[in-house]
Amino acid sequence: MEFDLSLLLNGIVSGLLLGGLYAAAASGLAVSFGMLDIVNIAHPALMVTGAFTVVALGTWLGLDPLVVAVLQAPLFYVFGIGIYNAYHHFFEKRGDEALQGLAFFFGVMFIIEVGLVMVFGPEQRFLDPSYAYTTWRIGDIDLPLRMLVPGLFAMASIGGLFLYLHRSFTGLAIAAVAQDAEALRLMAIDPVRIKRLAFGISIALASMAGGALVVVQPVEPSSGQVFIGRVFAICIMGGMASLPGCIMAALLFGVVENVTATFFGPSWSPAVAFGWLLLVLAFRPQGLFGKAA
């Protein structure tokens, strides 16, 4: 293929926009996997569940998907607390996180996926907002609102999370529980309560990412599978618990994947995700933006 500068530029820009979506998907995982050390492989499946409820509620109420995503987030927060309670009671307390805990989340992922097929059917669902077919043009570069709006939405929600984690007392306690749960006990804060709260937040973020996902592309029950590799790769590359690192990694990831898709065809992009993950794990397990352990 002939090298084309504007094609490359467009690939980079839409990769950055795609990266915004990935950042939304990975930020919740940065909280659960990065900070709480809970390997929630059901995270992408919960994101897809959020996407389906956005479609269902949005169609019913006639609202914009992103508005619905914000409105439904508290429900998912409560759902996440329920999952954490079960996880804590059966696995964390017994010290069975490694084998049984992983199997638990895998089972949850599977139940969600099959459950979605049973409730909504296996076909693709979509909900187009009014701006879905508008594209802004700056010079040679296209800025489709279908990508731009969810990307900005993702940045806003991650920004809110960042402020919460760094400014509020509970937010600081979440950061503290990531470092030393026992020390937290000495400050008369119950680490389990903090972890429960943080896990609830991570699931609420997953559902908001689901809203962003619906704007970008149609969803089907198995859409989560492709995201598992992506979100874990981004989370690890970003240095696990760091939100800025997560955003940087997501944007970089989006660009690499999108440029690959532009020049080699979109069906190859999942392979990029996996290749990156393996390379990062093999050579820089502390992440591109993380500090050595």
Partner: peptide, 22 residues
């Protein structure tokens, strides 16, 4: 992946299936 914590192996195997399918 096995020189790292065990969960990285698990995550890698999960993605392996997706990529082989691609």
């Amino acid at each position: 992946t096995l020189r790292l914590k065990g969960v990285y192996f698990s995550i890698a195997t999960l993605c392996l299936a997706v990529v082989l399918q691609t």
